[in-house]
């Protein structure tokens, strides 16, 4: 009897910890690192971490919405590259910077919209459609660039990826703004509520009168748009559009969302979690660099962290 009771208390504690496990994990990582490296907790290093995660973090906000609606978007890495290349291409020939940026955003959003249409109207699986788009968009990048980087831009364009306001890098500011917007959309708008409803039970949402197709299409368009935003920032930061930019980014982006506690089965999660997930990835990369761990091992470490996170999640939800 006593045993059962203590077991129950233990379960409560686990549940409590479970709710904040991503945050606790991040905190633990930060505390351990602050002892291991005196450079870690410095302000420049912190800003550096935020800057490094901002590009993928922006995409992770879109991916959070996609996954909440019970989808998955594998095309974001390729859309990032294509949007960046289109922006660069428009600009390289002495073009208008604003027009070039709009063109890049339009390409990302348009192809995201196409993903959404295929998934909702043609009723094809999310995984396959975006896998195909990953390949199509990557191919288009190579066609468009001829496989060579595009560079030579207006110096003003460099500000987007390289500029700072005070000490804060501009990409971090853009990330913060998009996070806040993402939070507001998911928590305060009808559209956000419908994303949860569609992801939680699509048929029930439909019978409740929600236009589920339109929600899906919008979510993928947003994901494509945010991939384009990231692509433009990356192009600006590198001062060139690389044909291989963003390869395998989709995996890190999905990892951020999942580490942040959003359920791959849809309907459950938050952008707040995604921020923490992004920071875990960022701190992890940064720490391993500071500790001088070879990059090959870093991949292994990242994979293990993801595995442990998912394992904890599944243990927590076991009866």
């Amino acid at each position: 009897m006593e045993n059962a009771e203590s077991k129950m208390n233990f379960k409560y504690i686990l549940q409590f910890l479970g709710k904040f496990k991503a945050g606790i994990g991040l905190l633990a990582l930060v505390i351990v690192m602050s002892f291991l490296s005196d450079r870690f907790l410095s302000l420049p290093n912190m800003l550096n971490i935020f800057r490094q995660v901002s590009i993928m973090g922006i995409m992770a906000v879109g991916m959070t919405m996609v996954i909440l609606s019970q989808g998955i978007d594998l095309s974001v890495g390729s859309l990032l590259a294509l949007s960046g290349a289109v922006t660069a291409g428009f600009m390289a020939g002495d073009g208008n910077m604003v027009l070039a940026i709009l063109a890049g955003l339009a390409v990302g959003t348009g192809l995201g919209l196409f993903n959404g249409l295929m998934i909702s109207k043609a009723n094809l699986p999310d995984f396959i459609v975006t896998l195909a788009m990953m390949s199509i968009a990557r191919g288009l990048v190579l066609v468009y660039t001829g496989g060579r980087p595009i560079s030579g831009f207006d110096p003003a364009f460099r500000i987007i990826g390289g500029g700072r306001v005070g000490m804060v890098p501009i990409p971090v500011i853009i990330f913060a703004v998009i996070l806040v917007i993402g939070y507001l959309v998911l928590n305060k708008t009808t559209f956000g509520r419908y994303i949860y409803a569609v992801g939680g039970n699509k048929q029930a949402a439909r019978l409740a009168g929600i236009n589920t197709d339109s929600i899906k299409i919008k979510v993928y368009a947003i994901s494509g748009f945010l991939a384009a935003v990231s692509g433009i920032i990356l192009t600006s930061r590198l001062n060139s559009a690389q044909p291989t930019a963003g390869v395998a980014y989709e995996l890190d982006v999905i990892a951020m969302v999942v580490l942040g506690g959003t359920s791959l089965t849809g309907g459950k999660g938050s952008v707040g979690g995604t921020l923490i997930g992004a920071l875990i990835i960022g701190v992890l990369n940064n720490s391993l660099n500071l500790l001088g761990v070879a990059s090959f091992y870093q991949e292994v470490a990242k994979g293990l962290v993801i595995l442990v996170a998912v394992l904890l999640d599944s243990l927590q939800h076991r009866d």
């Binding site: 949860y196 409803a197 309907g267």
Partner: peptide, 24 residues
């Protein structure tokens, strides 16, 4: 619907959010 579980409930949403869904 006759099929409350599969077509009625959004299990991970609150009582309130489930109730207000059609008139949001």
């Amino acid at each position: 619907t006759e099929n409350r579980k599969d077509e009625g409930l959004i299990p991970e949403l609150s009582v309130g959010a489930n109730m207000s869904l059609s008139i949001l």
